[in-house]
Amino acid sequence: MADAIPTPLDAGPVQEAKRRVRSKRGPLAYTLRVVVIAYLFFLVVWPVSVVVQRAFAPVDGKPGGIGPLWERLTDPAAIYAFNLTLTVSFWAVVINTIFGVGISILLVRHRFPGRRVLSVLIDLPMSVSPVVVGLALVLTYSTSLGIFGDVLQATGLRIINSTPGLIMATAFVSLPLVIREVIPVLEEVGDDAETAAKSLGANGWQAFWRITLPTIKWAVVYGVVLSAARAIGEYGAVRIVSRGAEFNGETATLLIQNEYGAFNEAAAYAAAFVLVVLAVLALVVITVIRPQESHRS
């Protein structure tokens, strides 16, 4: 009887045979490998490394290196731009996180008329071109030609060409990122624990803070990192709703465009270098979180 169960000894040769199959790669496999590496090298790796190199390169005979790079980044205009980007991204991410967690719980844990329509519409913002996002906000909130223009004019509240508009444009383009991470986790864990907590006398808030939030913690963190990366890098929508002039609604991405357009390439490369570093950082954080998240569930 016992020999019906495959022992490690039986498995040995089979595994070895499999490994041999694996290692027996034809010329095709090597060709594909070389093609893929070359493609990625010429399309992504080399160009990105040239940007990094240019950020540290000497300009107009002045020496390069970290010192001059730092000088370019601490230029008042650059400080203003990064400050604005951080402020706008912070508020957009806060809004999207609160809205995202709330709407995810409502969509997964509750039944109400229109729920299905809402769940489809939620994904819409990411498939709209950034220029169209900007145009849409202008057509709604501009004081001169927006739908709500008269109301805004009367209250004196400015949205377009002002920070609220920047926040709205940024929140728009990154809206579904938190929701997409949280909904699958909520669906997977089910509501047993929450029901149990409530039957033991916990109120809605307690069930949320003690049970729901800890279970979706990593999904929320993941969504926040994705939203932040997207928010910091947004360009198209921001360009339309902002004046984008120096010290006047110029975010980091708009700074890059303006400086490059003004043939001040060193400043553009310096700011781009910071954004490249932030992007790589976000990717690293995401790869660190991912296994943890799947480990939990």
């Binding site: 080399w46 160009p47 990105v48 040239v50 940007v51 240019r54 950034p130 990366a229 910091i232 890098g233 947004e234 360009y235 198209g236 991405t253 890059i256 465009q257 490059y260 553009a268 490369y269 781009a272 954004l275 490249v276 992007a279 790589v280 976000a282 990717l283």
Partner: peptide, 14 residues
């Protein structure tokens, strides 16, 4: 992960 404007600049640099 790269901002689109940076993507443009990246390609222009090479």
């Amino acid at each position: 992960a790269l901002p689109t404007i940076v993507a443009g600049l990246v390609l222009l640099s090479l």
